[in-house]
Design a protein around this nucleic acid. Structure first.
Lengths: 211, 211
DNA sequence: GCGGCTTTGTGACCGCGTGCACGAGCGTCG
DNA sequence: CGACGCTCGTGCACGCGGTCACAAAGCCGC
C-alpha cells in the first residue's frame, strides 16, 4: 500500500496497453470476463505476453476464469491517465494540422484539442469547429490558459525544433512530432514521433528486398 | 558479387536508414565527407551505432576521414529502393486521407499518390489535384493499372481489415495503416501502423507517472 | 618514408524483451 | 467433498540491439 505501483513498467508493455484497452472496449457489453488468449488474439500478440503485461499493472486475473473486463478497463484507464482529460495544442495548421483539428476522434478519447496555433498571419484567425487559430507568439499564454500538457507539432521541418523549445519552455511535458526532422527535448519531456516519409521508406526497403 | 548483400540488415537499423539519408541530404552541398559523429549528432543517435548501421550496407568509409557523402547517399537510396518511384494508393478519403492526398511531400520523395479510393458514393468523383476519387469496388483494377505496391489505409477502424484483405489480394505487398485497429496480413506482406490515439495514450501514461 | 593523428570497423559485454513451460490457484461437477 | 480441468502468474533461457573500447588503416606533415 505504501509504495503502491512502485514497479517500473517496461516501455514495450506501455506501448501495448492502449491496444489492450481498445480490445477490451470492443468486447460485447455482456462479456464479463476475458482470457489472456482472447485478448492476445484481438491484440495480435502472444498470450504469455498479455499475462506478463497485465501483471505489471498489479491487476488481478482469476485462475481458471480470466480477467474481469470492467475491472481491467478501470485499472488500465487509471494507468494510462485516462481518468481525466488531457487538453492538447496543435502547432502548425497546414494540411495535416487542419486534418487533425477537424478529426473528432481526439476529444472523444480524452484528448480534446484545446487550441490551434500557427505562425502564418494568413492562417491566424481561421475557424475550425469552435476553435480559432491563434498567433504563434501567444503560444505560452495559450498553453497556460488551457493548462495544456501535450503539444502536437505539425509544422514544416525547419520550424519544429523552435516550436518544441517554446512548448517545453511553456511547461509542456509531452510532445508528438509529425514534422519530418529529428528534434531534441530536455530530460523529463516525453517525445514521440510520427514520420510518414520514414515509414514509406521502411516499407519500400522490405519490398525491394523481397524482390 | 555473386551473393551480393546477402547479409541481413537488422530491423532497428532499417528504421534508422531513412533518418541518416535525410541528414545527408541536409548537409551543405559542398560537404564532401562526413564523420560518423556528425551523422550521429544530426540523427540523434550514438556514433558507434551509426558506424555499425552503415557497415551493414557494406559501404565503405575511409579511416581518418569519414564517409563520402555522395557515395553514401547513393548506397542508401539503393538499399531503400529509392532508385525508382513507388506509386501508392490511399484508401479512405476522410479527413486524414484527404490531408495526405493534398500533401505534396509524398511525390517529391519518390512515393507519388497514384490513386484515391473510397467506399462512400458521396466522395467518389471528388477531385484532389489531378486525381479523382475512385469507387472502392474498383480497387483491384486501380492497383493493377498503376502497378501499385504500397497501400495506405485511412478508413474507419471497421473497414480496415477488409481493405487490407482486398489490397493484399490485389497484389499489394506493403501497407501503412492509420486506422485505429489491429489488422493482420499474410506472410510476406509488410505492415506498419500509425495510431494517433495510441501515441497520445503512451504520452499521457508517462506524464501521469512523472506527476 | 615515417610517426602521429584521426576515424573507421568490429569484437565483447550487457540489459531488455520475448516465448516457453510449468506450478499454483480457482471453479465445477459428480 | 474430492478430483479434474482451466487459466493465471512467473522463472528461465535465448536472441536482438545498444554501448564501449580498441585495433586497423588511411592521411598529413616533416
Amino acid at each position: 500500500m505504501a509504495e503502491r505501483d512502485a514497479k517500473r513498467i517496461p516501455d514495450a508493455t506501455v506501448a501495448r496497453l492502449p491496444i489492450y484497452l481498445r480490445s477490451l472496449l470492443e468486447l460485447a457489453a455482456d462479456t464479463l470476463t476475458v482470457s489472456s488468449e482472447q485478448l492476445a488474439d484481438s491484440a495480435g500478440v502472444n498470450a504469455a505476453k498479455v499475462r506478463k503485461d497485465l501483471s505489471y499493472l498489479g491487476s488481478y486475473g482469476t485462475r481458471g476464469v480470466g480477467y474481469d473486463v470492467e475491472y481491467l478497463q478501470n485499472q488500465m484507464r487509471r494507468a494510462l491517465g485516462l481518468t481525466h482529460d488531457w487538453p492538447v495544442v496543435i502547432v502548425g495548421i497546414g494540411n495535416l494540422g487542419a486534418a487533425l483539428a477537424n478529426y473528432g476522434g481526439f476529444g472523444d478519447r480524452g484528448y480534446p484539442v484545446a487550441a490551434l496555433v500557427d505562425a502564418d498571419p494568413a492562417v491566424v484567425g481561421k475557424r475550425f469547429g469552435d476553435l480559432v487559430v491563434e498567433s504563434a507568439d501567444r503560444l505560452a499564454e495559450v498553453v497556460a490558459a488551457h493548462d495544456i500538457n501535450i503539444g502536437v507539432i505539425t509544422t514544416p521541418a525547419a520550424a519544429a525544433q523552435t516550436v518544441a523549445d517554446e512548448l517545453t519552455a511553456a511547461g509542456v511535458r509531452s510532445i508528438l512530432n509529425f514534422a519530418p526532422t529529428v528534434i531534441s527535448v530536455p530530460e523529463g519531456v516525453s517525445l514521440r514521433k510520427v514520420d510518414l516519409a520514414v515509414e514509406m521508406q521502411i516499407l519500400s526497403f522490405y519490398q525491394q528486398r523481397m524482390g
